[in-house]
Structures are given as structure tokens and as C-alpha cells.
């Protein structure tokens, strides 16, 4: 069956829960792979710091080569931390950049810089979104990726000191959460001004693999909710791990879609949403470290059909695609949705 909607129309309808010509396929988190880099002629590490290359890898790679309904930038979650003073280690050709040195200690009082938008790779990602909007904006949804306030706050002092302080002296982490919120909002607003149709918040540290439901409700969810309200465009919220105990709290953030891994019991979440009259599409949950990396295209098509049968509304890898994922496997997600 050939498509009768553009990716953009399809995804916007899917996010609203309206009928579509076929299931929508996106990658809520990063989808640059070595084979995709070769296919479009734009590679890491250059694409992390060059807007044209970032727009080519994400835009041409996502919209033309893989055939996703949405394209997004950037690839890593270190841009906010770098702009706020972190020292970054390049990932070279094969890795994403990582934080070599966190900018703050727990006892510091951080101050949000006025020139945040001119720092580090922030302007690169914003420019890449504007280039992608120009070229692909009428065909696919263009999304800007930001960290969640809780995750940015973590990256400012380091996970271990952050989680210890959260447990013992929670007052000390409030200024970092505030700063995380400001960074995320400022970055997100700049994407929107550059033409982004939607924002993806990756709040991977707010996962229940890391923190308790109580901590999620007290320290992560309120900032996600405020951020989503203040951004004012559709927001896809991605959180890793087993989220069963907070699926209703996530719905309460006001996000347009929740992106999850296969660790989440999706039928149970759908039933709970239905009971409460919540119409929040669930995005996921093709395993990026399982079938997507190791499976055959046929197995991936089966995984897509299985995800749809379990109530997944929009197909996506459950987390960032591993860079060594075969390109044929990413394309197989789209093919699986076409013959669903």
C-alpha cells in the first residue's frame, strides 16, 4: 500500500489520536548510524559542530534515507552542560561526545548565563533545525532535542554527587534544577523560533532505574510539566526504563506523546489511560539494543507488528539507536508500518 499522507500529516494526526493512512514511524532519540553517515556523506565528529552537516545527517538521513515522519537534532545530551561550563571529550568518529569534567560542585551556587544561546554547540543545533525546516518542513515534522531539567541538573554536578545530595541534602540541588529548567526552556524556545514544529525532551536520568517514583514526582515531573507548558508546542517526552508506576504522572505533564522502552507494560498503561479518559499516544518500543541492532529486517517488521498489537501508537526505537545499527534495520521499521 502506498502512502497517502506526508509524514508530517501522519505524525500530527497520530499525536492527536486521529486516523492515519498507516502507523507513523519516528525515532524520538538519536538515529545517526555509521551506515547512515556513509549514505549521506556527513559524519561524526564533524556533524556535532557543523550545522550544515548536522542538518544533512539528521534531515536527509531521517527524511530521505530512512523515511521517518519526523527528523531531529542533535545526537547527544551534553550540549546544555557544555554551554554551562562542562569540559567535553570528543567522541571521535565512533562515539557521541561525553562530559569529561562537570562544571559545578554540589555546594556551588550556579548562575544561568545571559549568552547561553551563543555558547558551544547550542547555535549549531538551532541552526541545523532551521536548515532542516527549510528543506524538509513541508514533508516531515522538525523536532529540536533538549535535555529534561532533572537530567541537565545531573550533568552539571555529576550523577553520583547529585543523587547522593538528592537523598541527603535535597535543598542543595534545587538551584541546579532551576538552572536545568532555564537551559531547557531557553534552548527549546530558540529551536521553536528557528522553525521547530515540536520539541523532544530526553529526561533519561528521571528514569525509575535511577530514582524512586516519589523522587520523580517531587523533583523531575514538576519541572517537566512547567517546561512543557512554557514551550507551547507539541512536546514528546522520552524517559528510559521501567516507568509503570509513574505513567499517569507522565501523562499529567501535558506532553503530546510519551516515548518509552520495552520495559514498560504498555497494555497496562493504555488500560489505565483509558479508564481515566487520557488520550496520550505511547511512542516506542522497538528495542535498540535487541532486535533493532541484532535482528533481521523481517524480525524487525514482526517487532513493529507486535508493538502495534500491544497498543503502541507511534513506532520508534525505545531509546537512542546504537550507531552500529544496520541501516536496513532502521528502514525495516518503516516497512513494518507500511504492511501493518
Amino acid at each position: 500500500m502506498s502512502d497517502t499522507m506526508t509524514g508530517r500529516e501522519r505524525l500530527l494526526k497520530a499525536l492527536k489520536g486521529e486516523p492515519t493512512d498507516r502507523p507513523s514511524v519516528i525515532s524520538a532519540c538519536q538515529y545517526a548510524t555509521y551506515e547512515l553517515m556513509d549514505a549521506v556523506g556527513a559524519s561524526w565528529p564533524e556533524a556535532h559542530r557543523d550545522a550544515e552537516l548536522m542538518a544533512t545527517l539528521s534531515g536527509k538521513g531521517g527524511a530521505e534515507v530512512i523515511g521517518l515522519d519526523a527528523i531531529r537534532a542533535p545526537y547527544c545530551q551534553t550540549i546544555e552542560a557544555e554551554a554551562l561550563g562542562a569540559k567535553i571529550k570528543s567522541g571521535g568518529k565512533t562515539h557521541i561526545p561525553s562530559i569529561a569534567e562537570h562544571p559545578y560542585k554540589v555546594d556551588d551556587v550556579p548562575e544561568f548565563p545571559d549568552d547561553f544561546l551563543t555558547r558551544g554547540r547550542v547555535p549549531v543545533a538551532v541552526k541545523a533545525v532551521s536548515l532542516m525546516k527549510e528543506k524538509y518542513g513541508d514533508q516531515v515534522l522538525v523536532m529540536g532535542g533538549i535535555g529534561g531539567p532533572f537530567s541537565i541538573a545531573n550533568s552539571l554536578i555529576g550523577i553520583t554527587p547529585f543523587l547522593k545530595a538528592m537523598f541527603k541534602t535535597p535543598d542543595k540541588i534545587q538551584p541546579f534544577l532551576e538552572m536545568g529548567y532555564q537551559a531547557a526552556l531557553t534552548f527549546g524556545k530558540a529551536y521553536i523560533e528557528a522553525g521547530a514544529d515540536a520539541i523532544v525532551i530526553e529526561d533519561m536520568m528521571a528514569s525509575l532505574d535511577m530514582i524512586s517514583p516519589k523522587n520523580y514526582r517531587q523533583l523531575a515531573q514538576p519541572y517537566e510539566k512547567k517546561l512543557i507548558a512554557d514551550l507551547g508546542v507539541p512536546v514528546i517526552l522520552h524517559i528510559c526504563g521501567k516507568l509503570d508506576k509513574v505513567m499517569l504522572d507522565i501523562a499529567d505533564t501535558g506532553c503530546a506523546g510519551i516515548s518509552v522502552e520495552s520495559a514498560v507494560n504498555i497494555p497496562a498503561a493504555k488500560a489505565a489511560y483509558k479508564e481515566k479518559g487520557i488520550r496520550l499516544p505511547i511512542i516506542g518500543d522497538i528495542s535498540p539494543s535487541g532486535v533493532l541492532l541484532n535482528g533481521t529486517p523481517d524480525e524487525i517488521k514482526d517487532a513493529v507488528h507486535d508493538a502495534l498489537a500491544r497498543g503502541v501508537d507511534i513506532i520508534s526505537p525505545g531509546c537512542a539507536a546504537a550507531p552500529s545499527t544496520p541501516l536496513a534495520n532502521l528502514k525495516a521499521m518503516v516497512e513494518g508500518a507500511k504492511d501493518a
Binding site: L163, K164, F167, L208, M210, I211
Partner: peptide, 14 residues
């Protein structure tokens, strides 16, 4: 078992 989370585990390790 989902009773403890990472901050708890870090405090046990301390």
C-alpha cells in the same frame, strides 16, 4: 526488586 533506587544503593555503599 524495585524497593531501592540508585540513591539508596549509593548510601548503602557509603
Amino acid at each position: 526488586e524495585g524497593e531501592y533506587f540508585i540513591p539508596e544503593l549509593l548510601s548503602c555503599a557509603d
